[in-house]
Simulated scan of single mutants.
Amino acid sequence: MKHLFYIMALLFSTINFAQNNALFEKGNTLYNQGRYNEAIDAYKTILDSKNHSAELYYNLGNAYYKLNEVAPSIYYYEKALQLAPNDADIKNNLAFAKNMTIDAIDAIPEGGVSKFIKSTTNYMTFDGWAKTSIVLVLCFVVLFLIYYFAYSTLRKRLAFMASMVSLSLLAIVLSLAFHKFNLDKSNKPAIVFSQESKVKAEPNLRSEEAFILHEGTKVQVLDTVKSWKKIKLPDGKTGWIPKEDIKAL
């Protein structure tokens, strides 16, 4: 009975993959024909089946960009960038989409060391750093075995030095992996979807207006109180925005 279950699960996943692949190709065809709304529907059908990829989010961003819909295009480019942080095409198209936003917000400059550590940490996803650490563990084990069983003094020396290098790199990669995990845990970005949103000083309609944001602006979510979200801008400003005005990444 268990074997039958595994076979049925494998068959279902194969059929699901084939259907999603067909939908993805259909979406691409519709996009190339300039039928962007229909392409979006095809891509979103794939998302509804709980399947996602950088390519899918990237194509959704492109389709919304063609329709001049600022917030959705930025949102899906950002989603694509989360899965493929080093993709040049995604970064370029995201930059084009951000040029359509109204709000000009200057980020607080970071120090040289902290900026370098952050950029290095964000070079890969947490999964990427974890996989790299596994590779380094295997390298260390193989090199240490070579060192242990080698008869030649030169070979022993080289294997030992290489194993120590692997171990040192492993320590660095593990540190970056944990740092990336903590960054992702504290990072709660969202995109403003409302065409214009009045950000309040406190989480109620009676409080004074702190500032105004427009669609496509990226914010950090700090807290939630009922139907309000406390947000922070790259320049350090904070305020409360109605939760329906933003969409979390």
Rank of each mutant, 00 (worst) to 15 (best):
A248N: 08
V142Q: 02
G34P: 04
E208A: 13
N59A: 04
K230D: 09
F5G: 01
P242T: 04
V141I: 15
F160I: 08
G34L: 03
N28P: 09
A71Q: 03
K98P: 04
L174C: 06
T217C: 08
L249K: 00
D41W: 10
Y43R: 05
L11F: 05
F211V: 12
G128F: 08
P85Q: 08
I90N: 01
S119D: 12
E69F: 02
L174K: 03
Y31N: 01
A39S: 11
K226S: 12
I40T: 01
A22S: 14
M100P: 07
K198R: 14
M164Q: 07
Q19I: 14
H179Y: 12
L47D: 00
I212W: 14
S152A: 07
R35M: 12
D48T: 11
D235P: 03
A84V: 07
K131M: 15
I40E: 00
N204R: 09
F96P: 01
L138T: 12
Y147S: 10
L174T: 06
K180L: 02
Y43Q: 04
N122W: 07
A130G: 07
G34Q: 04
I146P: 03
T121K: 03
T121D: 04
G236V: 06
K156R: 11
I108E: 08
D184A: 14
E55D: 11
K79G: 05
S114W: 06
Y6P: 01
F160T: 05
A159R: 00
P85M: 09
N99A: 15
K188F: 07
I117L: 09
Y75E: 01
K243D: 08
D223L: 13
I7A: 05
N59K: 03
L169W: 06
E38G: 10
F17Y: 15
I172Y: 12
S194L: 11
Y76C: 02
I46S: 00
I74F: 09
K230T: 10
F24E: 07
N28M: 11
Y43P: 02
I191E: 00
F181R: 04
R35W: 07
M8T: 02
Y57P: 00
N93E: 11
K188V: 07
Y76H: 09
Y148G: 08
A177K: 00
E208M: 12
G34I: 02
N122K: 08
T29K: 15
L183A: 15
N204H: 06
T29Q: 15
V221N: 01
N32W: 11
K2L: 00
E244L: 11
V142D: 01
F140H: 11
S175T: 10
K180F: 02
Y151Q: 10
S53C: 12
G128T: 08
V113C: 12
M8Q: 06
W129M: 02
N37H: 13
A210G: 12
L249C: 04
W129D: 00
G128P: 08
D103F: 06
V219G: 00
S119A: 12
M161K: 15
L143W: 01
A84M: 06
L222W: 09
I241K: 01
F17L: 15
K200E: 03
F96E: 15
D127E: 15
K98N: 15
I105V: 14
V113F: 14
P242R: 05
Y31M: 03
I134V: 14
A159H: 01
Y148C: 10
V70Q: 01
N93S: 10
E38P: 05
N21E: 14
V113D: 14
K156P: 03
